[in-house]
């Protein structure tokens, strides 16, 4: 009798298997959901490590593609390329111009502007864009921001877009 019971239990254990069909279904649904929620915008912002953007509750500007200038505590970058070094957000005294602009930054921005103009001359469909994206650390002092904006403005970049994190 006991031997019979043992055989029955052993047979049950052999039949049991994990049904992974349901698991595959769940994973497929998850993958579809993630792919759907994966937003692709015109602008891909990848701020440097340690750079924290300021937070706001609402910003109604649709992300647009434009020249990106990043201001961290140690450097200013144009399109992810370091242009000049900062010391605790401050420009070097020798780099400052009389009209409160930065010489190095102005040169780099003028180079970008020239490149844009060359493209615009060659292709009539391309227009010279006055937009500029400012990706600055939240602790940057206004004097530094002002210098960057002034340097951009003298080179024709007058439409400032400030990158922020939306608090939802």
């Amino acid at each position: 009798m006991s031997r019979k019971l043992f055989h029955k239990k052993a047979a049950q254990a052999q039949d049991m298997s994990l049904n992974i069909t349901a698991m595959a279904d769940i994973f497929t649904v998850l993958l579809v959901f993630l792919l759907k929620s994966f937003t692709t915008s015109a602008v891909t912002l990848s701020p440097s490590a340690g750079l924290v953007l300021p937070e706001v509750f609402s910003s109604n500007q649709v992300p647009t593609d434009a020249l990106k200038v990043e201001i961290s505590s140690t450097a200013v970058l144009i399109e992810n390329q370091p242009v000049l070094d900062l010391k605790d957000y401050q420009f070097a005294m020798g780099d400052m111009d009389g009209n409160k602009t930065s010489k190095s930054l102005s040169q780099a921005l003028a180079k970008e502007r020239k490149r844009q103009m060359t493209i615009a001359q060659a292709n009539s469909q391309v227009k010279i864009d006055p937009k500029i994206l400012i990706v600055a650390d939240q602790k940057a002092p206004y004097s530094t921001i002002k210098t960057v904006l002034a340097s951009a403005a003298v080179n024709g970049y007058t439409d400032f877009k400030l990158a922020v994190v939306q608090n939802q």
């Binding site: 953007l53 706001v56 992300p63 400012i134 400032f160 877009k161 400030l162 922020v164 994190v165 939306q166």
Partner: peptide, 9 residues
């Protein structure tokens, strides 16, 4: 993080 833009001009 949802990145937005403020227009300053």
């Amino acid at each position: 993080l949802s990145i937005g833009f403020l227009d300053a001009g």
